[in-house]
């Protein structure tokens, strides 16, 4: 049901004031897959995600959702198909978890709409899926960072969109919560077929969880495709300016990047 939606970017140029961040970029998001966008700090990853979700207007080019320009579509119509979790969302003081998750229903409700059974079901399903059902009546202020991030993801799930964009969903989380969040997104992709696009900082987590890797360097597309093909020492050098070795991750069979710094290099020079 979800693979029908297409999201692509054509000749996209983005910037703030007099600074160009992304220049004439073309990309197609593979439907029904998990895509990770990686790149150095300030390479335009988040900017690209903001433009894809209509938060930022392009200087040139356009973002096409099912063939229509996202920036010309009614905002609620977009929000029923495409969800976004910003990097550091703001939790208002004294809001109950299930009410916060319920905000995800906003694009499905009219101006004076009554809360429907379907809304309750969507919220309950989202809470169950993220393991936050027992927190439903707690105040968001009382939660730990990991719990909070799961609640935000629950809000995006309650929106019931076929496309979900996430800007660094694992920042500020310890390693077990990072894995937990990424596992959850994988579940979502596998059971509901939700197309996921996420900006990730951690190259190795990106390589493990993504079906499709997009590497940006200086606002341009450097490489894209299967992580096994994209994640090479040459890519890492070009994108991060870092020497590295790539081995096969014994746990997942995916590529694993080992950085070579100036110290601790015991391997004989290749």
């Amino acid at each position: 049901m979800t693979t029908a939606h297409s999201l692509l970017v054509e000749g996209l140029t983005l910037g703030y004031q007099d600074r160009v961040v992304i220049e004439s970029l073309d990309l197609t998001v593979p439907p029904g897959r998990i895509t990770a966008i990686v790149g150095a700090n300030a390479c335009g990853k988040s900017t690209l995600l903001r433009a894809m979700s209509r938060l930022l207007s392009p200087r040139a080019g356009h973002v096409l959702l099912d063939g229509k320009r996202v920036h010309r579509m009614p905002s609620k119509e977009v929000a029923r198909t495409l969800g976004l979790l910003p990097q550091s969302p703001i939790a208002p003081e004294g809001i109950a978890v299930s009410d916060l998750v319920g905000r995800g229903r906003h694009p499905h409700q009219g101006r004076f709409a009554r809360w429907s059974r379907e809304d309750d079901e969507a919220v309950a399903a989202a809470l169950e899926a993220t393991g936050t059902l027992e927190l439903a009546d707690r105040s968001v202020d009382e939660l730990s960072g990991g719990q909070r991030q799961r609640v935000w993801i629950a809000m995006a799930l309650a929106q019931r969109t076929d496309l979900l964009l996430l800007d660094e969903p694992t920042t500020f989380l310890d390693v077990s919560h990072q894995v937990e969040v990424l596992d959850l997104l994988t579940d979502l992709n596998r059971t509901l077929g939700t197309t996921i696009v996420m900006v990730l900082h951690d190259l190795n987590l990106a390589a493990r969880y993504a079906d499709h890797l997009i590497a940006l360097a200086d606002g341009r597309l450097h490489a894209e495709g299967d992580p096994a093909r994209v994640l090479t020492p040459e890519t890492v050098e070009a994108v991060f300016g870092l020497r590295s070795r790539i081995i096969t991750d014994p746990v997942s069979g995916r590529p694993l990047m080992l950085p070579i710094g100036r110290h601790h290099d015991t391997a004989p020079a290749a």
Binding site: S98, R117, D120, E121, V123, A124, A125, A126, L127, E128, A129, T130, G131, T132, L133, E134, L135, A136, S144, G145, G146, Q147, R150, L157, H177, E180, D183, L184, D187, L188, R190, T191, L192
Partner: peptide
């Protein structure tokens, strides 16, 4: 944060009736 059991349930299309009632 560790008090909540690890979650690997798959998101159900239809939630358990108890969950809907809680909400």
């Amino acid at each position: 944060s560790g008090s909540v059991t690890k979650t690997t349930q798959t998101p159900p299309a239809v939630p358990a009736a108890g969950a809907v009632d809680t909400v």
